[in-house]
Design a protein around this nucleic acid. Structure first.
Lengths: 205, 205
DNA sequence: GTCTATACTTTGATAGAC
DNA sequence: GTCTATCAAAGTATAGAC
């Protein structure tokens, strides 16, 4: 169930009852964003879709931003459950899967932009830690790839990690605005850039 | 002055008087965003900083989004005036310059995220055209580089163009959240990935 | 602990007076 | 062209029922 380290993000008091109800709310809220993105999703609309008052929502989440971050974290945790590998491919695969649910990409982009604002505390913390974690995992994976000869060694792995995440994020947005760019093929091209220069013409598996 | 094709974006009626006043407003508004980003920048705050009412602002721009897009377009047009080259380096240099003004990166990210929403018409149009233009310019430049032997030819130039823009956008955000990642050095690493595989060890200028 | 009702404040937007 | 007045919607906060 991958609930060992799920970022709960809500209020502190983690009584079993509250946690269960919070999960219910998040599950319903995710559906709202799947359909409508972060667009018409005011607290009152979300609450209405769930069947409670908007004030009740704020009983579980201190602010709208906290709720939205929790929704995105919850959705992402669900998605990363199946494979849970930390490789380069998982990032690129995730990008292709993400754009199938424009509402979540939109939610991600909106929250990320908001996290840059000075007042954003929850968002800034969440995305800082998320990027730190993703970069660390990817760097490790790339270094293993370098040791195994699958990744070129003339460039630092941590740079590549940051670039892969950045390119993935940026391309998803470009694709939503112009689907003809070919998200998957473009990302595969990026993966080719990571290969070590072929000495002869030997292609690895 | 690079005013031949400046995206004016405001109202249609382009009387000289209105245009001049609109420029005044944009110039003042840019300063507001430089200081405060898209954060505390309601129409009323911007109007107050300019010295008019918020309703007067809406006389020149049909909506808040239209004003903000115009502000960003105006700021970007100012910045791209000095060099106006269309190369890969200009994109990467622009990224380094951009993060020195966090408010503008924040404004860019906010507007871009908003442009993904269904209701956004001005934003969607602006960013779609902007990405189309940037990708086309970059692709051309990369193809010239491929012909000149400066860029590797085993990957399509249009893919590289989209990736460079995406990585630049994404990295600026990562850097704002975690400056230790080294924006400039990481982008230089990306530039290295574009080089043709060295046959011997000959380094080109 | 959970939730409704309600009120407060800010915001984008519109209408009409000067 | 600019203002004041006004509106509806939204985020937030509090009081109190159960």
């Amino acid at each position: 169930m991958t609930s060992k380290e799920n970022p709960v993000i809500g209020r502190e008091g983690s009584q079993p009852k509250g946690v269960a109800r919070r999960r219910e709310i998040l599950d319903r809220a995710i559906d709202v964003f799947r359909e409508r993105g972060a667009d018409g999703t005011s607290l009152r609309r979300i609450a209405e879709a769930i069947g409670i008052s908007h004030a009740a929502l704020l009983h579980y989440f201190d602010s709208r931003e906290q709720l939205l971050v929790a929704v995105y974290a919850h959705a992402e945790a669900q998605r990363s459950a199946p494979d849970s590998r930390t490789g380069v491919d998982s990032i690129l695969d995730a990008a292709v899967i993400n754009v199938e649910v424009p509402g979540l990409v939109q939610l991600y982009s909106t929250l990320l932009a908001a996290s840059l604002e000075s007042r954003s505390e929850v968002g800034k913390t969440y995305f800082s830690e998320r990027f730190d974690r993703l970069r660390a995992e990817l760097t490790e994976d790339l270094e293993r790839g370098q040791d195994a000869g699958r990744i070129r060694t003339d460039v630092p792995a941590d740079h590549l990690a940051a670039l892969i995440i950045a390119a993935s994020d940026g391309l998803q947005i470009q694709w939503l605005l112009e689907p003809s760019i070919g998200l998957e093929s473009t990302l595969r091209t990026f993966a080719e850039l990571l290969l070590p220069p072929a000495d002869g013409d030997r292609a690895g598996g």
